[in-house]
């Protein structure tokens, strides 16, 4: 494992900790898209089907369990916890995420590394992760104001994707047979979705002002 991948995994973990902290400390999930969180839970469940069949490292298995458990915990909070549930902005979170799930699954049926149950679900999870942030970005754009923790959550998620791209470049240069088109192309698409957000995040950071996204 190289430093870029480790940095990517850590910023990913940090983003989830920030989100859990926000929900736990404020007992509120305002500004957070439940649809994005549900998509992430599906992403992790579909991707880590290999948890019991392919052992890579203790670190790898541990992180898989953490990602599955934390994503389910967030969805659980937003759906079941009485106070958190009340703060959910249903009217702002209108993205039709079922279409994303269907489209990604169809794409996975066509484009995969191998036509097996696990490989199709792995490809599906890669495609779905690439677009899972869309309901969150749309929600932020619709609400205009972004609170600090939600802004940091999206920032760390974007940083995680950026580090993964550096990781692939590093692996491509140092490993003789590193070619993973599905993951790399989807990863670049996913990172590009954050470009706009990053731009406004940087502006607000530079001016030391509250993050605001244009309508």
């Amino acid at each position: 494992m190289n430093i870029f991948r480790l940095a990517g995994d850590m910023t990913h973990l940090l983003s989830i900790i920030v989100l859990l902290l926000k929900i736990y400390a404020t007992k509120s999930c305002s500004g957070v898209s439940r649809k994005t969180q549900e998509l992430y839970a599906i992403v992790f469940l579909a991707r880590y089907l290999d948890l019991f069949t392919d052992f890579i490292s203790v670190y790898n298995s541990f992180m898989k369990v953490v990602f599955i458990a934390s994503s389910l915990a967030i969805v659980w909070c937003m759906r079941v916890h009485p106070m958190v549930r009340r703060s959910y902005d249903k009217e702002l979170d209108t993205f039709r995420h079922y279409f994303l799930i269907a489209a990604c699954f169809l794409l996975a049926l066509v484009l995969h590394e191998k036509f097996t149950f696990q490989e199709v679900f792995w490809a599906f999870s890669i495609y779905l992760e690439a677009v899972a942030i869309l309901p969150q970005l749309v929600l932020l754009q619709r609400s205009g104001n972004v609170d600090n923790l939600t802004g940091q959550y999206v920032f760390f998620l974007g940083a995680y994707r950026g580090f993964y791209i550096l990781n692939w470049i590093y692996r491509y240069l140092t490993e003789p047979r590193f070619t993973r088109w599905i993951a790399c192309v989807s990863g670049v698409v996913q990172t590009a979705l954050y470009a706009d957000f990053f731009y406004y995040y940087f502006i607000s950071w530079k001016n030391n002002s509250k993050l605001k996204l244009p309508a």
Partner: peptide
């Protein structure tokens, strides 16, 4: 040779 390696990333 088109054989998928194990997915070692998260």
């Amino acid at each position: 040779d088109g054989q998928p390696e194990t997915h070692d990333e998260l």
